[in-house]
Design a protein around this nucleic acid. Sequence first.
DNA 1: CCTTGACATAGAGTTAACTCTATATTGTAT
DNA 2: ATACAATATAGAGTTAACTCTATGTCAAGG
Lengths: 122, 122
Amino acid sequence: MKYSIGEFSKLTHLGIHTLRYYEDEKLIIPERNNANRRCYCEKDFAWIAFIKRLKDTGMPIKEIRHYAQLRAEGNSTQNERMEILIQHRQVLKKQIRQLKEHQAKLDEKIKFYQEEITSQNQ
Amino acid sequence: MKYSIGEFSKLTHLGIHTLRYYEDEKLIIPERNNANRRCYCEKDFAWIAFIKRLKDTGMPIKEIRHYAQLRAEGNSTQNERMEILIQHRQVLKKQIRQLKEHQAKLDEKIKFYQEEITSQNQ
DNA sequence: CCTTGACATAGAGTTAACTCTATATTGTAT
DNA sequence: ATACAATATAGAGTTAACTCTATGTCAAGG
C-alpha cells in the first residue's frame, strides 16, 4: 500500500508541512513516483511511529537524524544503533524516576492545600 | 538570610539572566533593598524549587505565571490553586504512563537488535 | 579619588521545532 | 479542454524559553 503525503499526514497525525520538514531534516525520505510525488509506504509508517517515540522521550531531532542516517547505511551500523538506544534507555529511566518524584511532591502539596482548606472551614 | 541575585543564581543553578527573565514573566518577584538591588530570601528559594518542578513536568511558563499570580493574591485563591495542581497531577500521571510504554517498546527494540546481532555472529 | 565588579534596565539575538506563504505543476473529474 | 484540488519547492514567519549586549549606577577596596 502506498500513500500520498496527504494520506500519510492523516495516518500519522503529522501535518504535511511537518512531514516535509522531517524530510529536510533527513529523518524520513520517502520514495517518489514518476511525477515526483512523495510515496510513503507501510515501512515508513512504522519508522514514523518510532521517530515519534524518540521525540516523545525527549530526543532532539538532530540525534534522531543521526540514528536515521545510520539506519540508512544498513546492517553494518546495527551495533552502533543499538548502543544509542541503550544509552537512551538510561535517559528514559531517569526521566521516569524524576517524574515519579515530582508526582510524590505534588501529591504532598495537594494534601497540604486540602488540610489548610478543611481547617479553615471549621 | 538574604541573597543578591548573584548568590541566588548559584544557589538555584539558574542564570542571572534567567532569574530576571522569570521576574519579567512574573513568576518570582523578589524584594528590593534601598539601592534597588534584588533581595531573594529562603521563601523565594522554596518557591523557585516548586517552579522548577512545574517546569520539569511540562507546565508552560504562562500557566506557571497564572499560578504565581493566584499565589500573590493570597489565601482566598487556595482552592483555585489546588484545582490547578489536581489537574496537573492528572497530566503528570499520563506522562508517566506514556513514558513507561515507550520504555517497554524501546526494550523490545533493543532485544530485537541483540538477537539480530548474535544470530549474525553464528 | 579612582577603579572595579556586581548590579540595574531595555532591547536584541538565539535555538528548536515547527508552520505558513508564494508560486509553480500536475492528475482527475466534468 | 478546462477547472480544481493536491502536490512541489524555496524561503519567511512564529513561538517558547531563554541568553546576551549595550549602557548606566553605585558601593567598597587600594
